[in-house]
Every structure is written in C-alpha cells, then in structure tokens.
Amino acid sequence: MFEDKLKQAFVNALSIEENEVTAELAYSQHPKWDSTAHMVLIAELESSFDIMLDTDDIIDMSSYQKAGEIIQKYIA
C-alpha cells in the first residue's frame, strides 16, 4: 500500500512510467527529475501522504529510496 502510493506520487510528479520508478531512481540521474520536477514531487508527496516535511528532509530527498525512508518517519 505504502509502496504503491509512493510510486504513484513519483509517477504523477515526474511524469514517468511506473516501471521507471525503481530504488535506483535519483534526483538528476533521470532526465525528468530536475529541479522543477523536484518541487512538484515535494508538493505531491506532502499531499499524497498528508504530511509536512521538515526542511532538512526536503533537502535530503535525493532518491526514491531515500524518499521512502523519510516518509516512513512521518507516518509511523
């Protein structure tokens, strides 16, 4: 459930296919995850999980895997 929701947030925010959302997906490594898309992603994640991320976590959110780890802290 969590994984599906997280994956869908990435698909929506970065406008990429679901099969592109892997543990290796990282900021600036995928052509569509640029600085503009990153801001859309932060907004999408906050909205999807109904959370408000701290600044340090927004800064640390540099990969799909890291995003999962960070969001788990907020919903645990």
Partner: peptide
Amino acid sequence: QQIKAWLSRG
C-alpha cells in the same frame, strides 16, 4: 514563495 516556505520550516 513556495521554495522559501520549504526551506524555512526548520
């Protein structure tokens, strides 16, 4: 406005 808000939350 948005990016300032994100980077000001502490």
